[in-house]
Design a protein around this nucleic acid. Structure first.
Lengths: 333, 333
DNA sequence: CTTAAAACATAAAACGTTTTACTAATTCAA
DNA sequence: TTGAATTAGTAAAACGTTTTATGTTTTAAG
């Protein structure tokens, strides 16, 4: 059964293709098509189940009603939750989302941008890797809306939505200090992206502001994409070698590995050893004892992102670039 | 800066559009284009950064090199992990994946299928909801490859890949019984999909085979999409009202809610109260005490799914429908 | 009646490819 | 020297829409 085209509808209705097209696109009134014809055509469309070929439509109009979402890793719960929220909200406005993971691989990221570009997506939502500044700038030059989220790219002039990583990190450390901790470690990753750097800076600044000397030895940078068992070993070393009394994990997956390490060491979390994780996760709530975490306002981030991109899409005019920084919450457990 | 078209390349190279197209598509040899021309055109393409417009390509050829993946909920870790694996494997074969969540909403599922259809995706990977049998059959009639996974649809004749839910559930209950448990509860959902039914059947059969009378009162069916706090209350009731000594949770998110309920009740998991969760999750490994779980072989499922769909895509011939049932593993912790 | 304006409708170009069918030039065997 | 076969390349149709420019018919005013 061949799929129907607009032509079939036109023939069946005894009108021209143009007329059918106008009706489909709600321009019937404007183009003064008679009520009778409108009714007839609509009926035929309904009963035949005709659906316009979006590919042809895209080819002609140059847009697609699709927004491309590029994230680091869909299997990370922070991203999958955000993705779900964004998808939801976009869907309600008639936009579809297609998403794909970069795995923090610059080449793959570029590939994805190209793929989205050649599929003519209308706009881009990206949690960027370093190294794709040029590609993003090319999109902007091409007048495509781009919203960055989670991490900013300083060489790119566009909208950005993210949590206040510096402050969240700073506050976490401060809360340790209030509890009398002094040997505070940071476990972070070695990927050079802004939000990770900010978390590091927050850590450092909080120490300095409270007259605690910063020491490189208390900071463990885990290789991105490194095997988890290896990461766990490195953390065990850190936890054993120094008399650490608190540790901030800069991402949720690092915190999870850290908890595994502690479990293997049989080291209890409690009064003399505190932990805070960055990005909340079900694990932390259920853990015994439960684990404090920095909670990013996912809902709010998603909402803002969607808002910004829809604005861009509806108004041709290029709005002022906005950098929206949303406070994160420290959930003390 | 207008984006380049094949015509621009043709003009720049002083050859026809046809020639450029042949070269792009690797048909240069076959169509006897001279080495010199090939080299020249390739050079121009490279230095100009020309990328073919996939929309136009799709319109002409009727396919897209895109596989549509339809799942229940991308924020569920089972699905997001599977999605990541499938994406990965497809990517290596030159296929892109676009995915979207149905949220178990029949209308949304149909919508998605339509969207994918009008975007001319080459094949479909679907974890289906009941109620979309017709739509899937329409795809099949249209000669599109469809692979179902996680849950089968008995009214649809196509490939299926999933874990052996019946047996996994059966074994879980058996392991309880071996440990001397007799009052064994099941917490499941009320959505009527095959894999949930199988888990229920496995539970029931195991009881019967071991001369334990089945009782409706020990089975709690949680409303899908119901607020978590309410689910937790219902579970608390169950746990309090009967002298239950073991419970199997039919999905990982139910298990997580269940753990929260237990925590609120201050009920310890241990010798006199055992728990098994269906679908593993980081929470279970880290929980104190750690929680046994049925682990579906994600990697294997993803691999099989991709294998099947790629086979379908490359060979025009319709292969015999395969139902691949992969054993699941009970991780005893 | 005439005719300008309004109402209704359409033909055809364009979007950027792939592919079929064709032409022109060269080679080669007899 | 012919003409068949091979080599090298191209024109134009087709994919299914949207949209511009244009053409008819009807209405209403004078």
């Amino acid at each position: 059964m061949k799929t129907l085209s607009i032509k079939d509808i036109a023939v069946k209705a005894g009108v021209s293709i143009t007329t059918v097209s106008f009706i489909i696109n709600g321009k019937a009134k404007e183009k003064s098509i008679s009520e009778a014809v409108i009714k007839k055509v609509e009926e035929i469309i309904k009963e035949s189940g005709y659906k316009p070929n979006q590919i042809a439509r895209s080819l002609r109009t140059g847009n697609s009603n699709i927004i491309g979402l590029i994230i680091e890793d869909i299997s990370n719960s922070f991203f999958s939750r955000i993705a779900r929220l964004i998808e939801d909200k976009a869907y309600k406005k008639g936009y579809k989302i297609i998403y794909s993971s970069t795995e923090n691989d610059v080449e793959k990221a570029k590939d994805l941008i190209n793929m989205f570009k050649s599929r003519k997506v209308d706009g881009y939502i990206i949690s960027p890797t370093k190294g794709i500044e040029e590609d993003i700038n090319a999109l902007l030059a091409d007048n495509k809306p781009v919203i960055l989220f989670d991490r900013n790219l300083s060489d790119v002039e566009t909208h950005y939505v993210g949590a206040d990583h510096f402050k969240a990190s700073y506050k976490s450390i401060e809360s340790f200090i209030k509890d009398g901790k002094r040997k505070i470690a940071l476990v972070t990753t070695d990927i050079d992206v802004e939000q990770i750097v900010e978390r590091f800076d927050g850590y450092k600044q909080a120490l300095i502001d409270h007259q605690i000397t910063y020491s490189d030895e208390l900071v463990l940078k885990i290789h991105f994409n490194q095997d988890e068992t290896e990461s766990i070993e490195e953390m065990k070393n850190l936890f054993l070698s120094k008399e650490i009394d608190a540790v901030l994990f800069a991402t949720n997956y690092l915190a999870i590995s850290g908890l595994k390490a502690l479990k293997q060491l049989n080291k209890q979390i409690g009064d003399d050893f505190s932990v805070i994780a960055y990005d909340d996760h079900e694990v932390f709530e259920l853990h015994t004892p439960s684990i404090s975490a920095v909670q990013q306002p996912l809902e709010e981030i998603a909402e803002t992102v969607i808002q910004l991109i829809l604005n861009q899409l509806s108004s041709k005019a290029k709005a002022e670039n906005q950098k929206v920084i949303i406070p994160a919450k420290l959930i003390e457990r």
